[in-house]
Amino acid sequence: MAGSNPNAKPMNLTLKVWRQRNRNTAGSIVDYQVKDISPDMSFLEMLDVLNEDLLRQGEEPVAFDHDCREGICGSCNLFINGRAHGPEAGTTTCQLHMRKFSDGDTITIEPWRSAAFPVNKDLSVDRSAFDRIIQAGGYISINTGGTPDANEIPIPKDIADRAFEAATCIACGACVASCKNSSAMLFVSAKVSQLALLPQGHVERKTRVENMVAQMDKEGFGACSNIGSCAAECPVGISLENIAIMNREYINAKATSNNLA
């Protein structure tokens, strides 16, 4: 069945895929050939084809994380040809399509690599460190019910828009994966600045940034040295400005909070 472009020629590719049994064993690159790949396939559909072939041949398919396949859930996380989420800017792995590649290409596929993201198996990694950082303070401490009317607090449109832009982070981890220092600052700052910008978040702004940064350090992420690869590789375009906002929040919190610990 032909796709949108009846003239699109199927491709044959060489895949160099990282295979690793579990987090306690060493891994290595294994070469595979895939044939008749349609340019209209998504990158993950190409991996589906590989996995179906492997399974039919009695071999173990390649484990990888994915779910919504429309670029929003943040599950997919492949390091493709030396780039987080592959060569196309502003695109998650699941939204990368094979028309970005050419017949005969060799594609190297690796998992996110970071001490804080241990490999589960093959290309699947454990990103629960992100959850623990949010648990340390990435919320507004209100219970269900008893909240004021939604229109009680007017919020300037540009503030709401900026908060929204920070809030669009999908926690895929491309920032950590592409950072030379394996820093999680872009991820953490997106949440800190979203809640610092909004009036609802002001009540806890000091403890929030203190606790989230402390947890971030505890998880073993590196320090930001403003290289900018995180923002360049971020599939949803989280801005470096958020990191500056978080630095500001942190300095202010440390200098003026009543927290002596």
């Binding site: 919320y139 507004i140 209100i142 269900t144 019910g145 909240t147 004021p148 009317d149 939604a150 229109n151 607090i153 007017p154 919020i155 300037p156 449109k157 709401a160 828009d161 908060a163 929204f164 809030a167 979203q194 809640l195 909004l198 609802q200 978040g201």
Partner: peptide, 22 residues
């Protein structure tokens, strides 16, 4: 109606008009 109140209080960045209301 309670859902919207709840979500706004949580910091959900709903779209707003220039006057700051939802």
């Amino acid at each position: 109606v309670n859902i919207i109140d709840q979500c706004v209080a949580q910091g959900v960045p709903f779209a707003r008009e220039y006057g700051g209301l939802l």
